[in-house]
Design a protein around this nucleic acid. Structure first.
Lengths: 197, 197
DNA sequence: TGTACATCAGTGAACGCGCGTTCACTGATGTAC
DNA sequence: TGTACATCAGTGAACGCGCGTTCACTGATGTAC
């Protein structure tokens, strides 16, 4: 019947004194964190209660209303926060990749790993009935990023095919060096920073 | 705010007098039907209340307990009933098909159509947190049927390949007629009734 | 330097609600004698 | 054929619970004069 982990118990009993003046927004962040933790455990937004969130943070239920208009606003804000974090780490993973295929792989790998670590949140984000009941249009941005990552691969592939095909079929024409042209494709189509020199 | 459809309203107001002696089990079926209707609308088992089911049927909440031990038993019985129906119609669809590939296609087509007609039930059956919280092992039977349908395709393909390959590579041996051998494969591997004569 | 006041970060009691479940009951219908 | 009794198919009132939300409040900290 141990409903709380030691870590959570510690988080609750420690530190939760009133925030200093001007730092009231800190509680907002704590509430969102707790909400996401609970949603990940429950895997279902309907099962989450505002009072459970308050208990998790160690505050009075009424204090939640200082930062969120009602339960729905809280859940939506938490999911939007979670989603924004995913976008950010996705972009970070992509930016470290050498080429658009590696970037696409990095993005996909990151999302897979995240969904395995947070199956409950994944369910709430993509399978909960919240998707029917409320406007979660912010989620569109994730699809946009993925589509863009794929399009960069497609465009590069298409352009490189053009460069190669023309050289194969009309070798007598005065083509610029292939490597340089592909480099320009990479810079302009894919957004890779230009090679120095 | 019209929460009830005309059809449902009619179903509720009409007919719901006490069942005649010995026909008490009829109510059980009505309760299960209503439960499945509501689950299909809600798309979430946690959102379903026993009292809502009773309202839908037009009986006192307490009457549900005549047939089900508690709310969980009701939900589980309803889902098991739904699942059993799916198995049955899947088998029916398959049995009308000429060969194992057509059978597999018939089964897949039927399940797709059903999930489009009943997205809420599909969600409850496969994505609700009930799957974590309770034993839904009856669902394994669906996987078994599908696996069997696929295996019949695979086995037939493998056996036919053997028959053809041996004839191609050792044409000098006294092979039985290919059609007859394939027919035996159909009868014995796939379960097709033997051709008459 | 002192003091009245405003602001900020929260709290505790209370509300009405729908829920799952229990309990004692009702009234029609069959059955034994 | 009459009657006492058992069984069956349900019902209505009541319980305690956790919930979302409202309301009036508290007490520490900064600020104007």
């Amino acid at each position: 019947m141990e409903a709380t982990t030691p870590a959570r118990e510690a988080a609750r009993t420690a530190s939760r004194g009133r925030n200093p003046r001007g730092q009231g927004e800190r509680l907002r962040a704590e509430i969102i964190d707790a909400t996401l933790r609970l949603l990940d455990e429950l895997g279902d937004d309907q099962a989450l209660s505002l009072r459970a969130v308050a208990r998790e943070v160690g505050i009075a239920a009424t204090s939640v209303y200082m930062h969120f208009a009602d339960r729905d606003a809280l859940v939506l804000a938490a999911l939007e926060h979670c989603h924004a974090g995913l976008l950010r780490t996705g972009d970070d993973a992509e930016s470290g990749a050498a080429d658009p295929v590696a970037a696409l792989r990095a993005r996909a790998t990151l999302l897979s790993a995240w969904s395995r670590e947070h199956p409950g949140l994944y369910k709430v984000l993509h399978e909960s009935t919240l998707n029917r009941r409320t406007d979660m249009s912010f989620k569109g941005e994730m699809a946009n990023r993925t589509t863009a990552a794929i399009r960069r691969c497609m465009d590069l592939r298409t352009a490189v095919h053009g460069a190669v095909s023309l050289r194969v079929n009309q070798p007598e024409l005065p083509w610029p060096p292939l490597e340089e042209q592909v480099d320009r494709f990479l810079v302009k189509l894919v957004g890779v920073p230009p090679a120095q020199g």
